[in-house]
């Protein structure tokens, strides 16, 4: 089934045209760094180790719209790269771990985004919120690790 996807005409054009595939890879790396970096800054602020002078809610409101823009672009570009070799990616267990890590990281990110304006109201950020931010940061680092393991273990990507 996934093999067939690779042979859709536009997918074949995309994967066999060097500059198209390269451009989408560049978009994937750029927007992934942009997204993870933006979320990391809010996580670090919640943990109390970055931008301590700035209100958590202010920083989150400034940064999150950028983060989600990057996220959407990273997902779209990643999906196109997936389609180009769908037959190899779909059954790959390390790729499944990567997708699971992305899902968990997104849930953690949503919790941090939901919490930021609430935590900003209290005199001190609750300890569980700091732990949540750390978990969110570690999950994203874990996602990068899962992504780096795919070429190392499977020779894919």
């Amino acid at each position: 089934m996934w093999e067939a996807v690779e042979h859709w005409q536009w997918v074949e054009t995309f994967s066999s045209t060097g500059w198209m595939y390269a451009s989408v890879s560049v978009i994937h790396y750029l927007t992934m760094f942009w997204f993870i970096g933006s979320v990391a800054v809010v996580d670090l602020r919640v943990m109390g180790v970055a931008a301590r002078k700035r209100n958590v809610a202010e920083l989150a409101a400034q940064v999150f719209p950028w983060a989600w823009t990057g996220m959407v672009l990273a997902l779209l570009s990643g999906f196109m790269m997936f389609l180009a070799s769908a037959g190899d990616w779909a059954p790959d267990p390390v790729f499944h771990v990567k997708l699971l890590m992305i899902t968990l990281s997104l849930v953690a990110t949503l919790i941090v985004q939901w919490g930021a304006p609430r935590w900003a109201l209290s005199a001190e950020i609750p300890a569980w919120a700091k732990v949540m931010a750390l978990v969110c940061l570690l999950l994203w680092i874990g996602t990068i690790l899962a992504a780096s393991e795919i070429p190392a273990m499977e020779g894919l990507g």
Partner: peptide
């Protein structure tokens, strides 16, 4: 080492995320 290369890539990419993320902001 089978493990060291991806872990080193992890260091590079984690640093880049923070660097590029804060630059773009």
């Amino acid at each position: 080492s089978l493990w060291a290369y991806p872990f080193t890539q992890l260091i590079h990419f984690t640093g880049l995320s923070i660097w590029i993320g804060t630059n773009l902001a």
